Computed example of a mutant assay.
Amino acid sequence: MSGPPWKIPESVLVVIHTPALEVLLIRRADAEDFWQSVTGSKDHPDEPLALTAAREVAEETGIRCGEGSPLAQGLRSWGLQNVYEIYPRWRSRYAPGITHNTEHLFGLCVPERLTPTLDPREHTAWRWLPYQEAADACFSPSNAEAILLLPKFAQ
């Protein structure tokens, strides 16, 4: 029997937004006061980051933005990354000794506010907010900072 399937400490953060800079936030099921953008780890070390981003958006919101989809051109890497300390409550998901994660920033521009389809095991609510309000509502400082960069990358 093999050991636990450790999470890879390399992830994506995808800020889903409209042209009017409204941002979709989703609330974590395991922490009721934690509102966030789509985020998730690579499935395997060689997985391309754009594939990770499109997969996570589909898994967490039901929005399809992978290659060949109508929204594929709206998914863009911002060419930025954050390295942050993994919250102690979630470190058991990673191999022993892993304390930091590298997060790659993406944006997904959708033409209008879409209604996401959430997996209630992961997220329990969603809302669209103007980007400044969305940044204020995020529990994660790196997520808030990414949202505040939206005007620069949404052009």
Rank of each mutant, 00 (worst) to 15 (best):
I26Y: 00
K42Y: 02
D30Y: 13
Y94I: 05
V15A: 10
R55M: 00
S92L: 07
L24G: 04
H44C: 13
E85S: 13
E22V: 00
G68L: 11
L75F: 09
V14Q: 01
T18V: 08
E32C: 10
T39F: 13
P48E: 04
H44A: 15
R93I: 01
V57S: 02
E32G: 15
V23L: 04
L24N: 09
I8S: 03
V12P: 02
F34I: 07
H44L: 11
T18P: 02
G68E: 13
I16K: 02
L24C: 06
R91Q: 15
C65V: 04
L13C: 12
R91D: 02
I86M: 00
P96M: 08
P88V: 05
D46T: 10
A95Q: 14
E47K: 01
A72Q: 13
A54D: 03
R64G: 01
S11M: 11
R89A: 15
S11P: 02
G40R: 05
K7T: 12
L51E: 15
R55S: 12
H44F: 15
E47A: 07
T39Y: 12
E32R: 14
C65E: 05
I26E: 07
V12A: 03
E32A: 15
P48M: 03
L21V: 05
L49F: 09
L49S: 06
A53R: 03
L80I: 08
L49N: 04
H17C: 04
D33M: 11
S41Q: 15
R28V: 04
I8M: 01
L80P: 00
A31Y: 09
S69G: 01
K42S: 05
T39C: 10
E22I: 00
A29R: 08
S92T: 11
P9S: 10
R93N: 05
W6P: 08
R28C: 00
E47S: 02
W35S: 03
E67M: 08
L71R: 08
P45H: 02
E22P: 05
Y84W: 14
P19K: 01
L51Q: 14
T18I: 01
V14L: 06
P96A: 09
K7I: 01
V23Q: 07
